[in-house]
Design a binder for these strands. Sequence first.
DNA 1: ACCCGGTTACTTGACATCATGAAATATTCA
DNA 2: TGAATATTTCATGATGTCAAGTAACCGGGT
Lengths: 147, 147
Amino acid sequence: MATPSKTRRPDELTLEVVDLIGSVVARYHEEYEEAAAEHALTGAQARLLSLLSLEPLPMRKLAQRLRCEPSNVTGIVDRLETRGLVERRPDPADRRVKLAAATDEGRRVARSLRDSLRFAREPLAGLSEEQRLTLRDLLRRMLGVEV
Amino acid sequence: MATPSKTRRPDELTLEVVDLIGSVVARYHEEYEEAAAEHALTGAQARLLSLLSLEPLPMRKLAQRLRCEPSNVTGIVDRLETRGLVERRPDPADRRVKLAAATDEGRRVARSLRDSLRFAREPLAGLSEEQRLTLRDLLRRMLGVEV
DNA sequence: ACCCGGTTACTTGACATCATGAAATATTCA
DNA sequence: TGAATATTTCATGATGTCAAGTAACCGGGT
């Protein structure tokens, strides 16, 4: 409330919105890690398992989705494989490729993880349906989703 | 207020919004890490340095802000101290306490980091002022900021 | 005043995970 | 055959937790 009329460079309002987004990011992360920990998973393991719960993927594609090095994915898949949540399959079309796939148990854990993600309920509960629609459209536009 | 046609439990629209928020979170994180890397900092170092650029803090409070164990903060401050971006000072009021404070150079880096955070511009650039206002209000409400 | 036990602040050490990069191996493709 | 691709292994460093250790504060009770 200090500077009403001054035109700052990145502008006051934008800064506040960025700050709010920062808070949302922090909270989202916290709750995600927390939900993962309840299933004895790390954040990285939970993200990878969630991806695989939809469809099997080659290691290379996993690395692209997670934006990290393939050698890193090797380790994460190793740990999940040890626990029987993920398995490696050969790709019949290319013998260089290994497909990582969630096991039945892995899919079960992924579903349970998804359900325990409180973020889907609490923060959005305070918004009416119309407000959620507005928020959806604004977020879409922010992310450059073609309307 | 009521659900449209299908009465899913977490409801379709909410799921989409949560998903969009997930994308925002991913993008924010990516760009934050990228901006940090441009200054030869890791994400954790950048967050800690940003906190200290505002005011010196005891190690214990840093751990609370960063939501991690104090022993972890010791290491991060060690690395920043080695690079001359942070220093430890005694707390005159309590000799158990060590205050971590950004050096001049540390504050300079923190400022530069803040400036290079593209997230403040690009994604919000597509929104009109009115839309940004709406987004601010919705985010505030989501985060439970008392209106 | 004194000491004493409990608490707090920080560090250290051991250990697991995550992340990168370089090198090795196997396979595909032109 | 030779270049490119997919994966793994290894070395290294940062992050994170937990348990144990040291130093300092604090609030009695005598």
